[in-house]
Simulated scan of single mutants.
Amino acid sequence: MVSEFLLLALVGFCAQLVDGALGMAFGLISTSSLLALGIPPAHASAAVHTAELATTAVSGVSHLAHGNVDRRLLVRLALAGAAGGSLGAFVLSNVEGSAIRPFVAAYLLVMGGLILLRVARSARRSDASPAGAAPLGLVGGFLDAIGGGGWGPMVTSTLIGSGHAPRKVIGSVNASEFFVTAAISATFFGQLGATHLWNVAGLIVGGVLAAPLAGYLVRRIRPEPLMIAVGLVISLLALRELAIAFKVF
């Protein structure tokens, strides 16, 4: 149990280092790693989202304080994302782990590719608009719960890629993520109970230890190479899961 706790703490530490430098990917890295350790998809997603409650709350308050949030966009994303996330958590909790595992791995592979795509995309500077936010939030919340992460990369990339100002989009998406995460975590607790709390503790301890280093990383590391590395790691872990699921080796 101690060795497993330390391993989960290491996962949380590395994931938080990346998330602190890029503002995303804690969920994707943690979920990919937990699946690789043999933890069932529902328990992996439940652990990651519960651990994210504290980090998303702090992030959201920070963005609100700095004026980075479009309140109309926030409300639409939060409501739709919470609904989609609850549905996704319910579905994942009631499907056999071995059956859903290949689909989760395929989703993570897509998210890894999406992160790589973000490196090559340049964003325009128009004001963020709430148009289309509700359907995007519904789908983003559902897939975030199913895949154990991806709300930020999916929703942020879609809004910025469609021409919205990055500052308002990033702030609004980050602030709304707390409500999405809270809804997903509550649904998992209702469906699974507290069986995933040991995993949560390890992720939180590692994340808390890494959090103070985020400011240093932001100043010292260029985001593009790190995004490429994260995209590749997530994609490779997802390919490994797919290979195991389909008995390639």
Rank of each mutant, 00 (worst) to 15 (best):
L7W: 14
L22W: 14
G23K: 11
M24R: 07
M24H: 12
G27S: 01
I29E: 00
I29H: 04
S33P: 10
L37W: 13
S45W: 01
S45Y: 08
T55W: 03
T56Q: 06
S59I: 01
G60T: 04
G60W: 00
S62A: 02
V69H: 00
L73R: 00
L74T: 11
L74K: 14
A78H: 00
S86E: 04
F90E: 05
S93E: 06
I100V: 13
Y107E: 03
L108Q: 15
M111Q: 09
R118S: 11
R118K: 15
A123F: 09
R124V: 00
S126W: 13
A134N: 11
I146Y: 04
I146W: 02
G147T: 01
G147C: 07
G147E: 08
S157R: 04
S157G: 04
T158L: 09
I160V: 14
R167P: 11
V169C: 00
S172D: 03
V173T: 15
N174I: 09
N174Q: 08
S176N: 02
E177L: 07
A186T: 07
T195Q: 07
H196R: 02
H196Q: 12
V200Q: 03
G206I: 04
G206K: 12
L209Q: 01
A211F: 15
A214W: 15
I221V: 14
L226M: 05
M227S: 09
M227D: 02
I228V: 11
S235R: 05
